[in-house]
Computed example of a mutant assay.
Amino acid sequence: MAVTLSEAAARHISKFISKRGKGIGVRLGVKTTGCSGMAYKLEYADESGAEDLVFESQGLKVIVDPKSLPYIDGTELDFVREGLNEGFKFNNPNVANECGCGESFTV
């Protein structure tokens, strides 16, 4: 069981945490929404809770709540630039289908 960061994602997160002046990593999870049923949640984390699962990747912490882990186990969070756009990309091996807009998925 693990959720990891690519080098590009770790660089981007580290830069943001440095500018922000605090933080230990990112919190990843899923929520029920969208056309396909589930969508990713991503936020910067300052601390972890007692129930959280904490993974170390590229020198940063990736924090996941236990209910989300079955849906994102094995996921690599990447940071990509495509033309003029840039953003995080979830490389999730559990995804069975994604909606056309790319905002939600099913497992």
Rank of each mutant, 00 (worst) to 15 (best):
T33N: 11
L5D: 01
G37M: 15
S14K: 03
G21R: 13
G25N: 07
E47W: 07
G49Y: 00
T33Y: 13
V64F: 12
F55H: 06
I24V: 15
G23L: 09
S36A: 15
H12V: 03
I24F: 13
A8C: 00
G49L: 06
H12D: 06
A8L: 06
V64Q: 11
S6P: 02
T4L: 09
Y40D: 01
A39S: 15
I17G: 02
S48H: 11
K22M: 05
P70I: 05
A39R: 03
K22C: 06
E51H: 10
G25Q: 03
S48K: 10
D65W: 10
Q58A: 14
P70G: 09
V26E: 01
A8Y: 00
A10V: 04
P66T: 12
T32V: 15
K22R: 11
I17V: 05
Q58M: 14
T4P: 08
R20V: 04
T33K: 12
L28C: 09
K67H: 13
L53Y: 10
I24H: 09
L69E: 11
V62S: 05
V30F: 14
V62E: 08
A8P: 03
K67D: 14
L42Y: 01
Q58L: 13
G29Q: 02
I63M: 10
Y40G: 01
S6F: 01
G37D: 14
L5F: 07
T33R: 09
F55N: 12
R27A: 08
V30H: 08
K22N: 08
R27F: 02
V64R: 08
A50M: 01
M38H: 15
S57W: 09
P66A: 13
A45G: 05
E43S: 06
I17M: 14
V30N: 08
S57G: 14
T32Q: 13
L5C: 01
F16Y: 10
